[in-house]
Design a protein around this nucleic acid. Structure first.
Lengths: 216, 216
DNA sequence: GGGTCACGATAACAGCATTCTCCAAATCTG
DNA sequence: CAGATTTGGAGAATGCTGTTATCGTGACCC
């Protein structure tokens, strides 16, 4: 019937518009030089639409960034899930998660940032979320937390991970450990970043065994 | 001689002015509601000076924030050093460092933020530094990194910490682990923050032993 | 006492997010 | 198909903020 059809077509049309804004946003994020934030006007121009439309579909710049961030996380979680699925034991899957996520969070060396490789702008927005909008931040992180929590609890179940480390709060902690270590570790220490593969290996070494020597 | 005296007095006077801007900045940071950034004008007003003077002593708002951040880190490092000095073995000192620093990075529960308890604004500025001004960020973190590195290498020396974990890059990594876990761990996981003491204990448990069960 | 300098008050400017106005084209309704 | 309604384009207007420039005044030095 006509009503449904017209609703549908309207929805499709607006989704198309929303999507064009999102695409423009990602393009700008990927092409901007380090740290450079985009302006709403730039998004509008690049998407070939108007300011009017932008504010019709997004309550503000914040909403656009939130949508971009959401999609970035979702996409990252998907990629990780594929990677993890390749391994056969819970411990290997966990290790895979840690090392792969670490790689994804490493700052892009030359510029080719992707949805899985958070750009400085998204990273900074992530901060704003985490400090000022706890609700939204938690919601956005759900896909990642859920995946890691599952991976962790599988490992606990077969006894390769201590049972203390099963909850989602632990998952959150480990995520932040990996993410920020990858992103900022070398900057904080002021040392040159090393080769990603061995760095990821050390990350796993740290997460899995800690820094203290084995008790005799 | 007159020249030296007048130079001195000029310097003292300007240091007084600079200091007044810094003090005003800290006050605003401490009193602002969560996430609220201050404006240059507010700093100027509160310090009882003029815009003119502000831009005479600071190249821009960025410089003021950098100075505040610097001082916050320095002050944190000092406090930590005192705490650490109370312990008698290298391992205990390390543990003390981890748990105390964790506490300091915990978000202030009711509002009383201090120089040691980074406010959201400073945390966000920290982010900007870390993503866009690596040099300045590294420099600012030196006091903390140095202290932790010293503490770590003492522990390595007596054999309680694996020798892989001696460098400043490791120190940077551990700092970011603690700092961001404290600040964001519970937000990312979407769980309620727990009691600081036990959370700090778990942090140490994680850092020292990792998540994997002891090999049989 | 005249000159220089630091400083306060304040206006001017620029960038950006957001809102508003006007209007034309598309879409719906009867 | 004709009129009504919605949609969206172009861009001006507003408000906030960081930054710079102007002007005048009082302090300090020779």
């Amino acid at each position: 019937m006509a009503v449904a059809r017209s609703l549908d077509s309207a929805r499709v049309r607006s989704e198309g518009r929303v999507q064009r804004f999102l695409d423009a946003g990602f393009e700008l994020l990927a092409s901007a030089e380090s740290g450079r934030d985009f302006t709403v006007q730039e998004v509008v121009d690049r998407s070939g639409q108007s300011l009017r439309s932008f504010y019709q579909y997004f309550a503000g710049k914040h909403e656009l960034l939130l949508a971009l961030f959401d999609e970035a996380i979702r996409s990252t979680a998907e990629r990780l899930e594929e990677q993890v699925a390749k391994e056969h034991t819970p411990l290997e899957r966990l290790q895979r998660f840690v090392t792969e996520y670490y790689r994804m969070c490493l700052p892009a060396p030359k510029g080719r940032a992707s949805k899985n490789n958070p750009t400085p702008v998204l990273a900074e927005f992530c901060h704003q979320l985490l400090t000022a909008h706890h609700e939204e931040a938690s919601r956005a992180f759900v896909p990642l937390v859920a995946l890691l929590e599952k991976t962790l609890s599988d490992a606990v179940e077969v006894g390769v991970v201590r049972s203390t480390f099963a909850g989602e709060d632990v998952a959150g902690g480990i995520l932040s450990t990996i993410m920020f270590n990858a992103a900022y570790g070398s900057t904080i220490s002021g040392t040159e970043p090393q080769d990603p593969t061995s760095a990821a290996g050390e990350m796993w070494e740290f997460v899995s065994r800690g820094i203290v020597t084995e008790p005799k």
